[in-house]
Design a protein around this nucleic acid. Structure first.
Lengths: 225, 225
DNA sequence: TTCATACTTCGACCGTAGCCGAAGCATCTA
DNA sequence: TAGATGCTTCGGCTACGGTCGAAGTATGAA
């Protein structure tokens, strides 16, 4: 016993319902203030304050102070990946009644600011099949034809390259159990779709709602097989 | 709030130190009896019994009854993957003193019966670089030349194909943060190395100890770059 | 300066869950 | 049949951690 990193400490951190709600809320990728997160978690500000301190101390959240507000966000993408993998286990469990809201989430949702769900997986598959993305040892790699494609799509690759964050990352979908595209490129692709008004975020949840034109355009842009 | 699967329940399950020890012990891939796990977790049999029931009920463990013994194992590979991703987060945290035992674990260890750690990552990289393994959308795929290679290595591919379990899977290493080879092929490769007496398991931990000849042979079989 | 807002600290309360001793089944051995 | 051995159930103890009200510290607005 007592070998390797201590799982139980992190798991305990995630295990409290209020903290789990906070983490889930931050899966969208946006930064939220302490009071906003208190509402999200369904507890009073004092209680939330304690939880947030623990999460930051545990390395799961990062915090930025701005005036009298404190903005919290996930510490890094790995946290989101780990949370998704836990969701994968949780969705296995019995008594998982799938409501209509759940269906929307399975179809398309935001995961740390990139596209996840059936449509996320479809996009990833399309890019790979057409040779735009190559799934390398560590992470997916954008090929030359792929760079041309996403530039055409309207993504400013030069700006993304300038950032230190990794361009491509893969993330395992809890609902689909397949890979979708994360990383700064994944975020940029979703941002572009929002700019083009293909898709709109649901204010209440992580669900993404594609309108009629958006759906058609998506199918055209990311054909599969 | 209350969207997607309920993370907190699974996380709470993993969050108790005794249960975390149990899960970690089962990461080797072997099935253990209730009393063995009680010792591993450092609690009395009664207490362990309760924990084990919860883990089975939560879908994290599977159980097989054999005479008056009960053998417990991880429910499926996804559980191991999720645990590894939690370890990845945990190893980030401060106050992670890395002892000598930890070093051995980082070098080579068993992860659900396949090879993990630096040497696991190295093997995966070597196989990919030489075109034996192609990292596809879902999971790695063994190429034709790859099939020839592993057959030459002494793995009975026909037997593996006959099993329903997936041949190749990738698993993210908590210590290396890179991919290594899991799935039935991953297990077969490690088994073959043990047959050849390249490597021996440590009884006390998940560490794998390569002897001198084993190390040399490994370097020869899986060159990198 | 004065008031409002955002967040934190303190203290007390309470519930839950882990823990073990004792006793109870179930299964194998002699 | 009697006696081990492996696992489970029960009951009661304990402690830890989540919760909120009240009060305290920052920052910004009037």
């Amino acid at each position: 016993m007592k070998e390797g990193p201590d799982i139980s400490r992190v798991a305990t951190l995630i295990g409290d319902p209020a903290r789990a709600n906070i983490l889930t809320a931050l899966m969208t990728g946006v930064a939220l203030t302490a009071t906003e997160l208190a509402v999200e978690a369904g507890v009073t500000p004092q209680t939330a304050s304690g939880h947030l301190a623990k999460l930051v101390d545990g390395g799961l959240l990062q915090v930025r102070k701005q005036g009298r507000h404190k903005y919290f966000a996930l510490a890094h993408g790995d946290v989101a990946v780990a949370l998704e993998s836990l969701m994968g286990l949780a969705s296995d469990m019995r008594r998982t009644r799938t409501g209509p809201k759940d269906l929307a989430l399975r179809r398309a949702r935001v995961c740390y600011n990139h596209l996840a769900g059936q449509m996320g997986v479809k996009m990833f598959a399309s890019l790979t099949q057409r040779g735009f993305l190559r799934d390398d040892v560590d992470a997916p790699v954008l090929t030359d034809t792929g760079r041309a494609f996403v530039t055409e799509f309207g993504v400013d690759l030069a700006a993304l390259d300038a950032m230190r964050a990794p361009l491509c990352r893969s993330c395992l979908d809890w609902s689909e159990r397949r890979t979708h595209l994360a990383g700064s490129l994944g975020r940029a692709m979703l941002a572009r779709m929002e700019e083009r008004r293909w898709v709109q975020r649901d204010n209440q949840s992580r669900a993404l709602i594609f309108n009629a034109q958006g759906t058609t355009a998506f199918e055209g842009a990311f054909p599969v097989e």
